[in-house]
Amino acid sequence: MPRTDTLQGALALLALKILSRRGPLHGYAIMSAIQEISADALRVEEGSLYPALHRMEECGWIQAEWVAAEAGPRKRVYKLTAAGKKQLAAEEGRWLAVAGGIQRVLRMA
């Protein structure tokens, strides 16, 4: 996906990371997981979560599957693919480098 700006990139990175740790999840679960783990510091908007998920799906990083729920409508569950794992590693490395850079600048300047 060519036009990923940093924030969108960050959302994708977080979603991929969570899927890699917690296994297949549906959109709401991913959203709450990010909120939970970041101790409410990061709030994901529904309006950007789903487009991000769909883009990742079309890129082949994650795969979606409809799963029947015990109650209520069926759920669309996302799962990390091999390509997604690769992407996660790359994104994570890049993020850490950028974050480290920013931190250094903040400290030293």
Partner: peptide, 8 residues
């Protein structure tokens, strides 16, 4: 999917 999210 949106409906399922709202339900959740």
């Amino acid at each position: 999917e949106i409906q399922s999210h709202l339900h959740e």
